[in-house]
């Protein structure tokens, strides 16, 4: 893999069984992303953006073609290796936040670090740092049901960022948020992208998100339609 390149797909095809036939969600996608990019997969529902995001996130495997993420071929990873990749190098942000409801904000953000067996003092510092990035240090003892949607998504960002992953994959992160909260969240992510050089890859069709992207990758019916880089 070339220097600086952390995601590369070659002729990526993904098919899903649909009754007796098959549905092709991705049709021969060729794509490369470098370190520190702030890019988005843009397209209407059913265009294949979430499928592509899931494969890059090693939650799914390609039917055909190659997907290389951080020098690892996703199609050849064992379940354990894929889990390790997610645990160590990838962060996820979901449309519905997917926070653990019975855990406090602090515990939710701490969780990825527990999986990495990071020692107590260091872990605490990292959690508080992450919560400071998203401005939630005053809510550490609250639980997700006590938070607003915007706050939940900020917790989810802190959870994704706390281990300083190489790539953050965000699937429609603003879909359940109002405009003010969406901008707030996006500004936080832009800041983190700049400060930590983390690569962000979004799946979205939200104009607000699109306006923040430095690279816009348009998908249509499972094919790469357009790939635009926004100049500063």
């Amino acid at each position: 893999m070339e220097d600086n390149l952390i995601i590369k797909t070659e002729k990526l095809t993904k098919r899903f069984p649909m009754g007796k036939s098959e549905f092709t969600a991705l049709k021969g996608i060729d794509l490369s992303l470098g370190t520190g990019e702030f890019a988005g997969l843009i397209g209407p529902s059913g265009s294949g953006k979430t499928t592509l995001l899931n494969i890059v996130g090693s939650l799914d495997t390609p039917s055909e073609g190659k997907v290389i993420v951080l020098d690892r071929s996703i199609g050849n990873l064992t379940a354990k290796e894929a889990a390790r990749l997610r645990k160590e190098k990838l962060g996820f942000i979901f449309q519905n936040y997917n926070l653990l409801a019975v855990h406090t904000v602090y515990e939710n953000v701490e969780f990825p670090l527990l999986l990495l067996h990071i020692a107590g003092t260091e872990r605490k510092r990292m959690v508080l740092d992450a919560l400071e990035w998203v401005g939630l240090t005053d809510k550490i003892k609250q639980k997700p049901p006590q938070l607003s949607g915007g706050e939940c998504q900020r917790v989810a960002i802190a959870r994704a960022m706390v281990k300083k992953p190489s790539i953050v994959l965000a699937d429609e992160p603003t879909a359940n948020l109002d405009a003010a909260n969406s901008h707030n969240i996006l500004q936080t992510m832009v800041k983190l992208n700049k400060e930590l050089k983390t690569t962000f890859l979004f799946a979205t069709h939200d104009e607000k998100v699109i306006s923040y992207l430095k690279r816009k990758i348009y998908l249509l019916d499972g094919k790469l339609d357009k790939d635009e880089t926004v100049s500063n």
Binding site: G57, L59, A79, R86, K87, E88, L99, P112
Partner: peptide
């Protein structure tokens, strides 16, 4: 289910 999916996304294997 979402919680299960979240555990997997965060780095758990399904067996775990």
């Amino acid at each position: 289910q979402k919680e299960i999916g979240t555990y997997v996304a965060l780095g758990y294997t399904r067996r775990e």
